[in-house]
């Protein structure tokens, strides 16, 4: 029973990471590094809360997606069209998102750091499974968004590996020049990748505000955008891998809240995702293979 509760908690904590790391995969697979995911999550938390507060949970999600995509559009414009360093653009967006959210929170809710409480979706109990007692915490009072996130994993895997869109997206992330000579529109694919990542990061954000906490709190993302990047790397840029990594990181989060392990301060468990990611990148765990052209702006050669 306790294990099930812990796992249920892990799933809840993994969901925002999962959404965002799926988004990160689309962006990086198209060749655009997206450090701005944290910022996109932040605007997702705020505008999600705003939408949910005024128009209900569904609109919360819509607002969050639009907010995330708006920031993503800036990222695409700056880094794909203007070919500015993707890291710089992402960093600026994070600063911008923090400022914007605080500003609008103050203007709209007259408080700088919190929104009023908002109502989320009606929770689901999975039929049949919820009758099994020991599974109960896992399958009752489930946010629909958790289910959406989980469904998005096979969907993303299919999109990336089995569709024309996915093939072209991967090809511009690996070798934009080759893709271009074959008539693939590099700019369009990269915009698509970045915009999808913004939408998904926005969903990760709105999940936190609307479903997890029930309000917008300044700084509530607490670096989950970066953890999502870590999950993407840990999952070797694949949706299934991102799921495993997100669950692992979610579990680490759940443990820090629910379990006291004597001798290990909880901060050390919180470091785990970051430390593991470094280990993966250093090749201690296994080889990390990022898309070959990630981070490089594409310039069509003259002559």
């Amino acid at each position: 029973m306790f294990m099930a509760q812990l796992l249920a908690s892990a799933f809840r904590m993994a969901t925002p990471i999962l959404f965002t790391s799926l988004g990160a995969i689309y962006s990086e697979r198209s060749g655009v590094v997206n450090i701005g995911l944290e910022g996109m999550m932040i605007v997702g938390t705020f505008w999600g809360a705003y939408g949910a507060y005024n128009y209900g949970p569904l609109w919360g999600v819509v607002f969050a997606i639009v907010a995330g995509m708006t920031l993503a559009l800036i990222h695409a414009l700056v880094s794909v069209t203007f070919k500015v360093d993707q890291i710089i653009s992402g960093t600026a967006l994070n600063i911008l998102a923090a400022g914007l959210s605080r500003f609008f929170c103050l203007v709209i809710f007259t408080m700088a750091t919190t929104s009023p409480t908002v109502k989320g979706f009606t929770t689901w109990n999975l039929p049949l499974l919820s009758r099994i007692p020991w599974l109960k915490p896992m399958v009752t009072n489930l946010s629909p968004l958790i289910v959406v996130a989980l469904v998005l994993v096979p969907v993303s895997a299919f999109v990336l590996n089995r569709t024309v869109f996915g093939l072209r997206l991967r090809s511009v992330g690996e070798n934009p020049l080759a893709a271009d000579t074959l008539g693939v529109n590099v700019t369009a694919m990269r915009y698509a990748g970045v915009l999808i990542s913004g939408a998904l990061a926005g969903m990760g954000g709105v999940y936190m505000a609307m479903e997890h906490t029930g309000m917008y709190l300044e700084g509530m993302t607490g670096g989950r955008g970066f953890i999502a990047l870590a999950a993407m790397i840990f999952g070797n840029w694949t949706p299934t891998g991102a799921l495993v990594a997100s669950l692992l990181f979610g579990l680490a989060g759940a443990i820090t809240i629910r379990v006291q392990i004597p001798g290990i301060p909880y901060q050390f468990i919180q470091m785990l995702p970051y430390a593991l990611t470094i280990a993966v990148l250093a090749g201690v765990v296994r080889k990390a293979t990022p898309p070959a052209a990630a981070g490089q702006p594409y310039e069509r050669g003259e002559k």
Partner: peptide, 11 residues
């Protein structure tokens, strides 16, 4: 709101 300035920094 002084947050305008944070926005300025990002911009």
């Amino acid at each position: 709101p002084s947050e305008v300035i944070t926005i300025l920094q990002g911009v």
